[in-house]
Design a protein around this nucleic acid. Sequence first.
DNA 1: ACGCCTTTTCGATAGTTGTCGAACATCGCA
DNA 2: TGCGATGTTCGACAACTATCGAAAAGGCGT
Lengths: 115, 115
Amino acid sequence: MPRSTRRRPALAHPATEEIDLYDVLHALADPTRMTIVRVLRTEPERACGTFPVDVAPSTLSHHFKVLRESGVITQREEANRRFSALRTVDLERRFPGLLDTVLAALARNEAADTA
Amino acid sequence: MPRSTRRRPALAHPATEEIDLYDVLHALADPTRMTIVRVLRTEPERACGTFPVDVAPSTLSHHFKVLRESGVITQREEANRRFSALRTVDLERRFPGLLDTVLAALARNEAADTA
DNA sequence: ACGCCTTTTCGATAGTTGTCGAACATCGCA
DNA sequence: TGCGATGTTCGACAACTATCGAAAAGGCGT
């Protein structure tokens, strides 16, 4: 019998209808977390430690928790890795167009920074 | 000679190109400020003290400052009143669709709260 | 069984934020 | 000139946040 499969406490994820706008806006109002979201936009999922952010592992863990509890990402455990994925479908159903618009705005924001 | 007209220090407003996405998201990630924005969406401008928010005057002043310095609203002085207006045109030019999308999301958010 | 890798949790800390009350500034008006 | 109305500024304060390092938990490979 495989001893893995559901041992650690289940990860908390809000249901789609429970995703709160203020939580989402707050989650996105941070450069480190926004970087995570931007990367996740281009890939279906990715392990936590592989993101191009320059913070301590414990800090990164904190940001993933904020993103997960706000409903922006899902996290799935596999072995000793934790994979994250954007909840694009859920977010689109809950707040249509929000993610796309914010990411487009992010591109504008960064274009201006380097101009 | 009218003794009014530009006596107090000019109010700080970021230029359109200087509006920062993180500042905007942070400004919108607060229910009191979001209420102000929602009301301002339906009227060209409005005096500070006339908003349906239940906080102390000093707190309200603080929120207006956050909204103004983030580039979400403009403030104009007239006599001893201060009128606020949404920077809809500037915001649309800087981050197309952002304000509309967030306000639509707000409607969804509140609809769910009361459901 | 042991060590390594990945990630979380804990404790601490410095900085930010929302809130208030009191005091101050400005203007219009009597 | 003084009063009242409108807002702001100034402390102060409690709550929250981003950050870190150290320690621990869980899984894999040798």
